[in-house]
Deep mutational scan, measured.
Amino acid sequence: TETREFDNEEEARKEAERLRRKGQDVQIRKKGNRWELRRT
């Protein structure tokens, strides 16, 4: 599992969408005042 953190939700969602188009399974969750993007 690979995780990346983003400062805002929009960036996290854009990156998640990009990875999903490549066929990756991605989850986003709020972590304090940041957003965590998890690739499984």
Rank of each mutant, 00 (worst) to 15 (best):
G23A: 02
E9A: 06
K31H: 09
V26T: 05
R21P: 00
F6L: 01
R29L: 14
V26A: 05
V26E: 00
E36Q: 06
E9I: 13
A12E: 00
R38V: 15
R34Q: 08
R18A: 09
R29Y: 13
Q24T: 08
K14E: 13
R34P: 00
Q27F: 11
T3C: 15
L37E: 04
K22V: 10
K30N: 05
E17A: 12
A16S: 04
E9M: 08
R4K: 11
D7E: 09
R4D: 06
R18P: 01
E9L: 14
T3M: 11
E15R: 02
R20T: 05
G23I: 01
T1I: 13
R18T: 07
N8I: 05
E36F: 09
Q27I: 14
R34L: 08
W35S: 00
R21W: 06
Q27V: 14
E5K: 06
T1K: 09
N33P: 13
D25Q: 14
R38W: 13
E17G: 07
R21Y: 06
K22N: 13
K22S: 12
R18F: 09
V26W: 14
N8R: 05
I28N: 01
K31L: 10
T40G: 09
W35K: 01
D25E: 12
A16W: 11
A16P: 00
Q24L: 15
T1D: 12
E9K: 06
R13D: 05
R13F: 12
R4M: 14
E17R: 11
W35Q: 00
Q27H: 10
F6C: 02
T3W: 15
T40V: 14
E9S: 03
R38Y: 15
D7G: 05
K31M: 09
T40Y: 10
G32M: 01
W35L: 02
R21F: 06
R38G: 08
E15P: 00
N8S: 14
D25H: 14
E15A: 08
E36I: 12
A16T: 02
Q27L: 11
R13M: 13
L37H: 01
K22I: 13
R29S: 11
R34N: 08
R21L: 12
K22W: 10
G23P: 01
E2F: 14
I28D: 00
F6M: 02
L19S: 03
K14M: 12
